[in-house]
Simulated scan of single mutants.
Amino acid sequence: MRMTTRQMLNKVPEVTLYFWVIKIMCTTVGETAADYLNDNLGFGLTWTTVVTGVLLGVLLVIQFRLPRYVPPVYWLAVVFISVFGTLITDNLTDRFNVSLVISTVVFAIALAATFAAWYRSERTLSIHSIVTTRREAFYWLAILFTFALGTAAGDLFAEKLALGFWVSALIFGGVIALITAAYFWLAMDAVLAFWLAYILTRPLGASIGDGLSQSSKNGGLGLGTTGTSYLFLGCILALVVFLSLTKRDQTPAELPASA
């Protein structure tokens, strides 16, 4: 079949320890920064959603126009899509009173539908094959739904089921550990293991973010959304600068099967 979309170098980083550390920190920032903008700076839920949505749109336009993976642009887009995904769930819960159970189920179905459409179109879900605009579009749509789903699932466990932030973090972290073990010792499919872990890092990061920022009476450490957000943003910046200089997360692309 003739390739109808432009081909480029792979647009995502190699899946290394750096990738997972930055990803978890991005999910934590997504949780705390949304609260920081909404409450601390007084933007309100509507304006926080609008502003972050516009900035995310601008970043994705830049990301799509680049011919290769550029760490600062890519990870800044991940930070903003994390914040925006959080706000989607927050709007449904706080503004429209949608149950967290319903949000979790709906976003899970939306994510599954995205994966199904992606695989039907491209015959692969590997992130090493993000070498066309169409595949990149599927990739970012899937990421958006993972963040919205993770926010809903994290809040469902921590608040609706009253498990608390740290117990929820242990649960999600434990499941990720089991997936990791299955990949290394039971030959679990690499693509399946990646996406399962990717989905679960969102509620893990959200639980950690809430646990660090919320007051002690609510089960947190009381660092506040401001301190937690800036702390993790600083760590993300340091790692992204390091990777930009060392190029340790560069990955060769898999050529599309239809090329």
Results as ranks from 00 to 15, higher is better:
1 M>E: 10
5 T>Q: 15
15 V>Q: 13
20 W>V: 06
24 I>W: 08
27 T>W: 04
28 T>D: 05
30 G>F: 01
30 G>L: 03
31 E>R: 04
41 L>H: 01
47 W>C: 00
52 T>G: 02
53 G>R: 06
62 I>H: 03
65 R>I: 10
67 P>V: 09
70 V>I: 14
75 W>I: 06
88 I>M: 12
88 I>S: 05
89 T>Y: 06
90 D>A: 09
94 D>E: 15
95 R>L: 13
100 L>G: 03
101 V>A: 13
104 T>D: 01
109 I>L: 13
111 L>C: 05
112 A>V: 12
113 A>S: 12
122 E>I: 03
130 I>K: 08
132 T>N: 05
138 F>C: 09
144 L>S: 10
144 L>I: 09
148 A>Q: 03
153 A>D: 04
159 E>A: 13
160 K>M: 12
168 S>K: 05
168 S>Y: 02
170 L>A: 15
185 W>G: 05
186 L>H: 11
187 A>T: 11
188 M>P: 03
189 D>F: 01
190 A>S: 15
190 A>M: 10
191 V>W: 01
193 A>P: 02
196 L>C: 12
201 T>L: 08
203 P>G: 04
204 L>F: 10
207 S>N: 07
209 G>E: 06
212 L>V: 11
214 Q>M: 15
214 Q>P: 07
216 S>C: 12
216 S>E: 15
220 G>W: 09
221 L>H: 08
221 L>K: 09
221 L>D: 08
226 T>W: 11
229 S>E: 02
230 Y>K: 03
242 F>M: 10
243 L>Y: 08
243 L>T: 09
243 L>G: 02
244 S>M: 08
246 T>D: 04
249 D>R: 04
252 P>F: 08
259 A>E: 10
